[in-house]
Amino acid sequence: MQTLKIVVTGPFSSGKTEFIQSISEIDVVSTERKISRSAERIKSATTVAMDFGRITIDEDLILYLFGTPGQRRFDFMWEILSEGMLGFIVLVDSTRPETFREARRILDTFRSYSPVPYIVAANKQDMEDAWPAEDLKIVLQVEEGVKVVPCVAVKKDSVKQVLLELLYSILELMDEEE
């Protein structure tokens, strides 16, 4: 049995949980949701919000999607999470320009961990005030050759497309290296 891992990152509320939920075959384990018993409702200082989902490829192969923890104070765990990843996706809430700088910072951080392919998903394109993907590419100063694709994380087909685009980028990189 082999497992592969793709990391889904991006600023708070960019749609990571939604993205993973849309495509995962298991209920996304989202640690942001709280235990309902009142005594446990108080989130302990060390609780981390992260998600993971799963896609079974065949009997020997499973793809895991890991969402990065939401809270800033858990940044140190990004590096742990990036170990062995196949590639990563940076989700951006295209309707909230105030988060673009943060998205760029996250992108840089992940790039520094690992030389794997990545793409940027301009999320929430179903909303009226979403900035177009092409504009985000410029604003975020995304490097040449890295795709910025439109995305609606609540729609499975759109999430599929984003994942496929990342996989195509991975193939392209393999071609280049040969």
Binding site: I26, D27, V28, V29, S30, T31, R33, K34, I35, S36, E40, K43, S44, T46, T47, V48, M50, P69, F74, M77
Partner: peptide, 11 residues
């Protein structure tokens, strides 16, 4: 499952 809270160590 969705109601699980993980500690840093568990994570």
């Amino acid at each position: 499952l969705r109601d699980i809270n993980l500690s840093v160590e568990e994570w």
